[in-house]
Amino acid sequence: MVRPLIIFIAAAITNNFILTYFLGLCPFLGVSAKVSSAIGMGFAATFVMTMTAIITNVVDHLILRPLHLDFLQMIVFIFVIAVLVQFVEMVIKKASPSLYKALGIFLPLITTNCIVLGLALLGAMRNYNLIENTFFGFGAGVGFTIALLLISGIREELEVRDVPKALKGAPITLLIAGLMAFAFMGFSGIITLQ
């Protein structure tokens, strides 16, 4: 049970997807201006990523590998993700309109987001089993949410600060992300990934 936990912490903190793999930068720049939308996006992404991790792992181990169709991995994963997001959207819409209202607009954004496909591909590359991959996906989602929350908090503050004109918007966000990546480097080494 230790290994899945280590994988979880690694994905969430030490090898944070945004700050060390640079995955999921589009929403990071786009949705991170307000804390409320960052929370919505974070939850939606965490949910989709955990589900993706489970389903792509099953598809990979039960269908693609036994049939030696590894070269179709990428296409299959993308399809799985697209279908999954669509499905999740439908279910949430039926089951909880209020949750749909909160998360709905973020879901389509996630389909074409590299963080989800990156998660599926990395998990397959590292040969994680189902439990490990589930923790990996959940950890990656939590890490994404943490980074998004932190940066949105800082950006809300920046609204009222005097940022040089040329650096307004994306450049200052990237600068902050750089400093955050610096800070997160301090976590590296607290656990060792196998």
């Binding site: 030490t14 090898n15 590292r126 590296s188 080494g189 060792t192 990934l193 196998q194």
Partner: peptide, 8 residues
């Protein structure tokens, strides 16, 4: 293969 600082 064994564990390193960042990964395998």
């Amino acid at each position: 293969t064994g564990g390193g600082f960042q990964g395998a």
